[in-house]
Amino acid sequence: MEALVASAIGVMVASGVYLLLRARTYPVVLGLTLLSYAANLFVFSMGRLTLDGPPVGKAIKKVAKTGEVAPFADPLPQALVLTAIVISFGMTAFIVALAVKSMATLETDHVDGEEPSS
C-alpha cells in the first residue's frame, strides 16, 4: 500500500513538473494543481497510512481516559492538509486570474507574455 501511495505521489509530481514546463498558461495551472495534490498527499502520508482509524467520533473520549492511541490515524497532518487544500484552491484561483488577465491584456497565453518570435 505504501508503494502505491508513493508511486502515485511520484507520478503526480512528474506530470505536474512536465506541465509546469509547458509554454502556455493553462497547462501550467493544471500542473500546479497536480503538484498541490501531490504535496497534499505527501504531507498526509507523513502521518503514515492507517486503515479504519479516523481520529473522529465517540471513541476519542476513551482515548482521553486510557491514553491508548493505537488504532487512530495521526490527526496533525490531516489538519494541516485540510487547510492546505483550501489554500491551494485560493492560489489556483489567483493564478487563473493572472492567466485570464494576461490573455485579456496581452492577447496571448504564452507564459512569457508574448508569442514566440519564430
Binding site: 505504501e2 508513493a6 508511486s7 506530470s15 502521518g47 482521553a64 487512530f72
Partner: peptide, 26 residues
C-alpha cells in the same frame, strides 16, 4: 522530480516516527 518525490515518500512511510499526534488525540 517524480522519482525523487516518490522515493522520498516511500522512504518516509516505511520508517517509524515520533509525533505530537498522540498528545492531540488524548
Amino acid at each position: 522530480a517524480g522519482g525523487g518525490a516518490g522515493l522520498v515518500s516511500y522512504g518516509i512511510m516505511t520508517r517509524e516516527y515520533g509525533t505530537i499526534g498522540d498528545y492531540l488525540l488524548t
